[in-house]
Amino acid sequence: MTPSLDIYVEDWAAGYGTPYLMDDEDDDEPSAILVEDGTNLEIHDGVDSDPSRALAFVDGVRRGEAALYRTDPDGSMHRAIAGAYACGAVLCDGVTVPRIIESRVQRLVIWEGDEALGLPDVAGGWSWTPRRARATGPDAPLGELQNRMREAESILAQDLCRAGHSVVMDGPIYFVGASDHDVMGYVKTHRKPILAPEYRVRVPEVGVGQRTSLFTIRGRNRDEKYACYARIGRRSEDSGPWSGIVRIEFPLFESMTRVVRLADTMTARLVRYAGVAHRDPRAPQNLQPIGALEKHLRHLLGDGGLAERAVREAVRIARRGEAIV
């Protein structure tokens, strides 16, 4: 008898890697604690109990546009990145054309070390706000750009919550203050084994529009939050067990009853926004509004080649003596 081979093909285009990055050899202790169904991991059907509730999807993009170096007289070198990020939101109410309700763009030059030097403005509307990377190391400036984008997303999410919107952030909940009730996180990639192995093996049992029991996890900032796994897209014959599975996160300060209702609603609701395979290489996890928003935001960053040319021009002006501001 031929042994069966469990070989699958990742749904995402190869260039985008795979959303399932969990390492079975990972030594980290799974941190999740089941909170909904006692010690059991159950499967729940999603139920949209509030169909009229509109969702604002928030996402951001960033781009390093030129890497800069500065050498001090003592020979020490400081790195910087000139780049930009944009974040925005799409409002989907299910009954009108989704619309981009907010978009914010920031162009920065970020230095490692203690000094944030500016660049002179260049014709065509190019200007850079000088910032210092809070971390150290060669990757710190780019990392800082990423963090600042995430912060900007959080600020936007909070602004939208205050304006009365229900917000879905693309990625884990991040920098969310206690007063921001109506915000959820939407995580496409699975890096760490959060659940204990005996629970984790059961996650692929969720069907489209279903979710696992809720559990609590600890985020990067050590803040606790609720989460569950849900499947938002149909698994094809070739797809792996975790195909179309995402993690939805909710702030811990919500009442359990409310989180259950929210989780059910989101599990049911997100299915309709699932990405479409032939038009999005990260389908189905990359949601349609998010995919369109990312494209729009990248467009707002302007032409990358022009941005690089502007940086070079700024550096030339600075070098000619008008000095770094």
Partner: peptide, 11 residues
């Protein structure tokens, strides 16, 4: 998707 399903933004 944009005008019927209302799942994608577009203007």
């Amino acid at each position: 998707r944009i005008t019927g399903d209302y799942t994608m933004p577009g203007s």
